[in-house]
Nucleic acid binder design. Structure first.
Lengths: 194, 194, 194, 194
DNA sequence: AATGAATGAGGTTTCATTCAT
DNA sequence: CATGAATGAAACCTCATTCAT
């Protein structure tokens, strides 16, 4: 009966906040940010609309928080190591890990994709992600060059297109796209080339 | 004093309908189907909201008509020829033509992409396109097999992922993606392999 | 090829006007004055909306004209004869004729009934009809008195209620109400009493 | 600080819902279902349009609920007793009670009448009411037969027409129709005949 | 921390009416 | 006399957000 400690409250808050965000990702991915209503999210999360506004300032704020937090979670695995140099093994790992992360967060990626397709609406998303993408791009380019590829830039283009396309396809129709076969294939491809 | 002839009316209708659809594609692509309002479309088309409903039964109907008409326009170039067999040259042409069509219809492709990412909302889109995609898939697979590729199925996977990814990237950030370089690269790639 | 004469034009106008009114009565009766749209009427009459406005100033004007004209048509049979005295035979005739007129103009009566149920909307209707009703009421009252009925006023009340109720019922569900049986019954009733 | 209890919310909802329905009956009766606007109802009820939609799914739903609830309220007095046999006294009571109920719910009856005159719009109304009407019709017919009336069927026809007509007249112009005199008269009539 | 009634701006849609032809 | 494209006001409805409790 003793009042909860500050930490307990903090924990409860954090959990409820996560719950709301998880539910929101799902609904946003299914219905679009604009097509989803705050009521739907509150209802599916089992809380009142009022309480949702206790945790997030607005619907847009909720979206921003989702992107912020999910970005962190998703991209943490790819923090480039200190030296900024990518070995062949690290590159293979990067692909494997990347595909795994996507498999585990389909809805987030779906949401992410709908968002990047509306440049005017959301610029938040880009900034973070773009930086990382550039760094990686550079490192992979260097790897390709070191491996004596004829046209490292062109190869980079093909590679990123391949990955991106596979993600889209997988995220859109998970059951129809053989992500595992794709994974072996692309790894086999670069294993030989590098 | 006499009323316009049937042809005159027909012309007016056809032109205005096209105008509305063109404007709508642009706005839908920019803001999402749900994020765009009929008012915005009417305003940008320079007509009253009421008139829009003279031409389309509803916002959803407008979307459907856009998809129907744009699908026709976009996919007509790819009607497989009678024999159902794809030569190496036809395959190269297919890629070239495909990229060109996309360059000329960026907004439609953007819209198409936001739509396929919301499976619950629109099933119209798929049916038409899926058929064609399957036919092509099969023909390309046969070509790869005839060319003695080791794993034609896997190669098809990589190829479609590459194309898809390039489209996404180009459509999303046209200025940043070197579509022409990508085109030469992928053609070069298959020119050697086939 | 000679231009039509003024009379011919006049005839055409009169016919078209009647056509529009007939169609409108039907639709108003079916959908309510408010629920019917000018477009529907024009379409069913096979003319353009614009032309309809050539014949009637407004939707409300169309309604007024319908009521005016139909009232005349409907009530003309009941113009009390000069002397203002109703014989038993005339009374019977009045009932017979009344029922016949209703059978022949179901839709007008339906419309009329929906209108009298909205006192605020239409006052036009009443004025004409009320006068006639009062005159008739008085004459029937006199007839009842001459026939030595105990309570002529009360009998008048019952009679008008009976007629009114039968009309409503018949107009509402023509197939279910045995109007002919009702007719014989009520005539038999007054034949004995008078 | 704590939220209202479930009962409190329940009470608020019930009261407001009743308020809206009461206001709506009045306005529908006065202006027709189609002629009344949701704005008018909200305004007269002193609430926002939005709130009305918190209580009713649509304007049509509001109408249906009114009919449902009012039907219950209105017809509950007439639940035939178990044996299904009507005595002379019960018949007299039925007429008295019926007239009283109508006097107390003029607006509902007005609304009801406008609705039955639009067969295409509302079928809801009929089903409930028709059943009851049939049961009563049968019971009254039996009573008439037991009382050795020459033509019980014809008498039933006259009686229901009389009642119906009186209701219409009273509901349409309450001040002009002497409902009390009608009541005594019709009771006197059947008191002698039965 | 929690509720859901309440608001109001804005969305989609309808329709009487006008007008150039 | 005749057309139907075009308008704009107003209808129905939705939903992010607020607030008393």
């Amino acid at each position: 009966m003793s009042p909860r400690t500050a930490e307990q409250y903090e924990k409860i808050r954090a959990e409820k906040q996560k719950l709301i965000m998880d539910v929101a990702i799902e609904i946003f991915a299914e219905k679009t940010y604009q097509g989803a209503s705050v009521s739907m999210i509150a209802q599916k999360a089992g809380i009142s609309k009022g309480l949702l506004y206790n945790y997030f300032e607005s619907k847009e704020d909720l979206l921003k928080e989702i992107i912020k937090s999910a970005s962190q979670k998703v991209w943490q695995y790819f923090d480039p190591n200190k030296d900024g140099v990518l070995t062949k093994e690290e590159f293979i790992f990067f692909i494997r890990k990347g595909i795994q992360v996507i498999k585990e967060n389909i809805n987030y990626w779906k949401l992410y994709l709908t968002l990047v397709l509306q440049p005017l609406v959301i610029d938040i998303v880009k900034s973070d992600v773009d930086d990382l993408a550039k760094q990686y791009g550079k490192m992979i380019f260097e790897l390709f060059k070191r491996s004596n590829m004829k046209d490292p830039e062109g190869e980079l283009l093909l590679m990123s297109a391949m990955l991106r396309g596979a993600i889209i396809q997988y995220v859109t129709v998970p059951n129809l796209f053989p992500i595992d076969k794709f994974e072996s294939k692309i790894i086999e491809y670069y294993f030989e080339k590098l």
